[in-house]
Every structure is written in C-alpha cells, then in structure tokens.
Nucleic acid binder design. Structure first.
Lengths: 193, 193
DNA sequence: CGGAACGTTGACTGTCATCAATCTCTGTGG
DNA sequence: CCACAGAGATTGATGACAGTCAACGTTCCG
C-alpha cells in the first residue's frame, strides 16, 4: 500500500501493490511524506536500479516484462483517478471490491473469496472516502446480499456479475487481467537476483 | 490531454501531456473509451515500441531517460490522485494553476503568464469538478487578486507564492521540476528518429 | 471483568452538482 | 457597419450526497 500525505491535508492511499507489481523510488512524489506499508503479509524484492538497467539491456524479454508491468501500473492509476474524480461513493467501493476479487480472490463453488486490507480507514483512504461513509455502503451492499461477511476481514462475493454491474470500471479492470503475461514472475525475479 | 470515459459515467481527463512527456498505448486502460486530444498546438512524435526497445538496449543514456520520464509521469499521476481524493475544489484548482505555471509558464516582471487549455469543461473534467463550480472558484481567486485575466484564455499570476500556498501539492510539483534532466529532449528525440 | 481499538449507525451540516437565467464573445449574413 | 445567432462563461437558487460528530456495539486484549 503506497500512501502519501500532502502538507495540510489528510492521507491518501494512492496505490495498492499486488504480487508481481514493481515500484521504484521515483514513483513517489517528493515533499509528500510518501510511505510504503504492508496491508497483508507478503514478500518484497529490492534491488539497485542500475542492476535492473543492465539486465534489461541484455535480455529483451526482461525489458519487455518491465515496461509491460509499468504500463499496467499506469493504466491502473488512470482507472483509479477516474474513480476518484467521477464515480460516486457506491461505485468506488464496488470498483475496489472488483479489483480485490480479480487480483487476490480465490474462486469457490459459492463464489469468490478475498480478504480486505487491514482497517476500514485504509480502504477509505484509498477511495477518498470517510470511514463512516464506507461502513454505510458496505452495510448497504450486504443488505442487498451482494456479498457476505463471514469472518472479520473476509468477503465472499456470491454474485460477481451483480457486483461488477455496480462498477463502471469493472470491464477495464478485467481487461487488465490478473498478472502480467509472458514471463512467469517467479522465474523472472530469480534470474534477476 | 488524455481522457477516458468509463461506461455509464462522465468523462475524466486523466493526464495532461506536456512537452517532453512520453506516452504509450498500454498506458490507457481498455474498455474505457480512451482518447488523446490536443488542448493546444503541439508536435507529437510517434514510433513503434520495438524501435524504442532496441535503442534503449543499445544506449544506457536513452534507457535512463525513458525510465526517468515514466517515473515522473507516475509521480504526477500519484499527486493527481491525491488531489482528486483528498483536496477540496479550491485546492484542486490552485494545484492545477501551479502545475500549468510551472510547466508552461513564462516569467515576466509582472509575474508568471500561461494559457489555460481550451474550454472550462476540459479543465473541470481534469479536476473532477463541475464547470460551474470551476467558474465560481476562478472568480473567487480573481477577486482575491491571485491572478488577472487579460485575454480570453491567458492568466497572469502576480503572486505565485500566494497561489502555491493554496495548493497542498505545490511543493511536490516544484520538486518534480519542469522537464526531465540529463538529456536534452530535442537532441534525444532526433537521435531516436 | 475492564479497557481500548475498531466498526456501525443516526442526526445534522457543508460542499458541490444541478438547473436555469443572464452575460460575453465570436463569427455570419444582411 | 450593424444585427443576430450560437457557443461558452458567469452567477444565483436549490437539492443531494457525503463528511462530521456523537452514541452505541463488538471484538480482542490484558
């Protein structure tokens, strides 16, 4: 979870980093108190940029992979910006749920299951909403039985189509796919290391 | 000006492209009716991505330039997301004015001069605002004599510091600088061509 | 059992979107 | 040169949506 806090303003979670994603120090603006925080257990590989450069220069597949993963990040940020700017709060929440379902969800016979990142506050900050408002909307969705709320932070979406219908960005997110194609992430990172 | 329109939603201008910037087809999400429109006269160079790849692989300076320019684009989009999510309408307008002043402004003895992109609607769509609201805020700023409005689309900012004080993102935008350092854009693009 | 952190829900307020009327500017045709 | 039309900008009145504040519930600790 990458978040920044502009001076005299409140925190904004600007990006959710999922497995296979790539970030670079330069992605975060200066003077904005940018920090990278884990929302769930995960593994991070860190390496000097110069090493990445030489590897990319020597192997076209790696270069292609890197540029692809960066292009996807920009596309996602573009969608996120459109959400923040143009969608009402219900649509934004639906969009986040679609995103989480696509990227971290496991398919079960009853539907798609995924975990919410820790804390309502974090989610609200990602969506540019108030935690209270977010809570209200989640209750509304639950009453409309869009999903059920088994454990603390686990969501089971029974009817994914109904959820996607509430998010104008659903089609775009699905088009972006789950993980970058072409190379397997693991093997790739192992070669980089 | 890159804008997208999510289905069943209104248009969002997601990025302003300035001289020296670089975009790629993959930056725009699919299923979102993405289009690239000029807001002012300018020159665009277009080339196949494979050519860029080979050039970057052969010249570390070009690779460094490309990754730098992309990192800046992401940093800007991050700031823009924070604006849309967390700033009120006055702060967003101030932020845009700071951005335009920094990137397209000319310094005169009386202050900084720059042009507004064509049409209030475009600007409003960039800021996630209503054109009416935007107009009100511009009037408020003019009454506070933050700037004067000589011709139709020309803005003269007398007191840049006062304007920057109204934008929480001003410091971050200034830290990003005007153009990517290192290589001159023109000579670089000419070599690429 | 008690306390703290977090989530939920209700009542109220403020900001911004919407709609409509008016004004300004530009280009066209008489 | 003037009248007119059309597009865009401004501004006011109004309403809806989301933020704020506060009270209450829940869960998880010690």
């Amino acid at each position: 979870m990458l978040h920044i806090t502009l001076p005299h303003s409140t925190r904004q979670v600007t990006a959710l980093i999922f497995p296979g994603d790539l970030i670079q120090t330069g992605f975060a603006p200066l003077c904005a108190n940018a920090t990278l925080v884990t929302a769930a257990p995960g593994e991070v590989w860190r390496m000097p940029f110069s090493d990445v450069e030489t590897l990319a220069a020597n192997d076209p597949a790696i270069m292609r992979y890197l540029s692809d993963v960066v292009a996807r990040r920009i596309a996602r940020q573009t969608i996120h910006a459109a959400s923040l700017g143009r969608l009402d709060s219900e649509q934004r929440v639906a969009t986040l749920l679609v995103e989480l379902a696509l990227r971290t969800g496991r398919c079960l016979p009853q539907g798609v299951v995924f975990d919410l990142p820790t804390g309502r506050k974090d989610i609200a900050d990602y969506l540019g909403l108030n935690p209270d408002t977010l809570s209200r909307i989640m209750s509304r969705f639950r009453n409309a039985s869009l999903f059920s709320h088994d454990e603390r932070n686990t969501i089971l979406v029974q009817d994914f189509a109904a959820l996607a219908a509430r998010s104008p960005a659903a089609a775009s997110l699905m088009a972006l796919g789950v993980a970058p194609p072409g190379l397997s992430i693991d093997s790739d990172l192992e070669r980089l290391a």
